[in-house]
């Protein structure tokens, strides 16, 4: 029993931080080209795939370290959809498609919809993407379809600046791959979404603690006031537990443990609450500057909001957590 990250995992986490540090936003949810290329070069998209499938033989716990960093940076770009799409492509035997995704030449958008149903769909990061990962949580099912630019019916204004939102018509979309085991894809997705949420929670804690040491009012740093310092302590508890429960869930999936589904749901729910609460409190801790567009505090809140509505929403979490 050991939940301490290995040297490789710690190196990976700091490499991710370095790639994402100080980047300028590509605007409209697009990842800056430099970041995307560096991510592909470091193998973020191939990390969790088996060596025989052109992957790096990493674990889900390894991938979780990467996605915690992506969440903490509130980074733009369809990292998660591209990682999942590559897995679906591999499982369907579409080796070339998988290679295009893992090498970073092809980006994937994603949408939640019944596989043979609603059209048009609301999709995320469709601009600049060549394929769409369609996730049907009810069946469950996961399918990759081609999205030519002409499939975009309308570009919508996104609530979260880290993604773009568009409406797509899929009636003539070519199916490229169908996941045989969509349940696995959804459960891995849930862990990686949790990792990003844990990253958001941690980034909010760090931002509040740094600001509370610097900002002075009434002649002292605001961190000397318990109204602020106690909130920071609560944020620290939530973000530390969020990081730990993601690792616990990821290792449980890696080891195919019987309690993995419950732990994944626990991670998903806990990190969602932690990220939303920490992001909210972080804005309040910053006062008026935290209310501005210029400051990053709102980006964390919007990331948390977006991710909270990703795979495995609350009702599905509840069902998994209360399963006897």
């Amino acid at each position: 029993m050991d939940l301490y990250p290995s040297q490789e995992q710690r190196d990976l986490a700091s490499a991710v931080r370095e790639v994402l540090a100080g980047r300028a936003s590509g605007g409209g949810g697009a990842a800056p080209e430099r970041v995307w290329r560096a991510a592909a070069a470091q193998g973020w998209f191939a990390l969790g795939l088996a060596g025989a499938d052109g992957g790096l033989d990493g674990t889900l716990a390894d991938e979780a370290q990467v996605f915690a960093g992506i969440g903490a940076a509130a980074a733009e770009g369809p990292f998660l959809a591209t990682v999942l799409a590559a897995r679906v492509a591999v499982a369907a035997g579409r080796r070339e498609l998988a290679e295009a995704l893992t090498s970073g030449t092809l980006r994937a958008a994603h949408a939640f919809a019944p596989l043979d149903g609603s059209d048009p769909v609301q999709a995320y990061d469709a601009r600049g993407a060549g394929v769409l990962l369609l996730i049907d949580e009810e069946r469950p099912g996961a399918r990759l379809v081609e999205v030519p630019g002409s499939a975009i019916v309308a570009d919508l204004s996104s609530m979260d600046p880290a993604v773009s939102v568009a409406r797509l018509r899929l009636d003539r979309a070519r199916v490229l791959a169908e996941a045989a085991d969509a349940g696995t894809v959804v459960s891995r997705a849930s862990v990686l979404v949790s990792a990003m949420l844990a990253g958001v929670a941690a980034a909010a804690t760090q931002a509040s603690v740094e600001y509370a040491k610097l900002r002075e009012q009434f002649g002292r740093p605001i961190g000397a006031f318990q109204a602020i310092s106690h909130r920071c302590a609560e944020m620290a508890i939530r973000s530390a537990a969020a990081a730990a429960v993601v690792d616990l869930a990821a290792v449980s999936v890696d080891e195919c443990r019987a309690d993995a589904p419950r732990r994944v749901a626990a991670a998903r729910r806990f990190t969602e609450s932690a990220a939303l609460e920490n992001a909210r409190v972080n804005i309040q801790n910053h006062g008026a500057i935290g209310f501005t567009w210029e400051h990053d505090a709102h980006r964390l809140l919007k990331r948390a909001w977006f991710l909270a509505l990703s795979v495995q929403p609350r009702d599905a979490q509840t069902a998994a957590l209360l399963a006897g």
Partner: peptide
């Protein structure tokens, strides 16, 4: 049901935190 699910998820997170601490 939601309240019990919240408690369960928090208890799993607390277990993870304690395990991470000992590790």
């Amino acid at each position: 049901a939601a309240r019990l699910a919240d408690l369960e998820s928090e208890a799993v997170a607390l277990y993870a935190l304690a395990l991470a601490f000992v590790s």
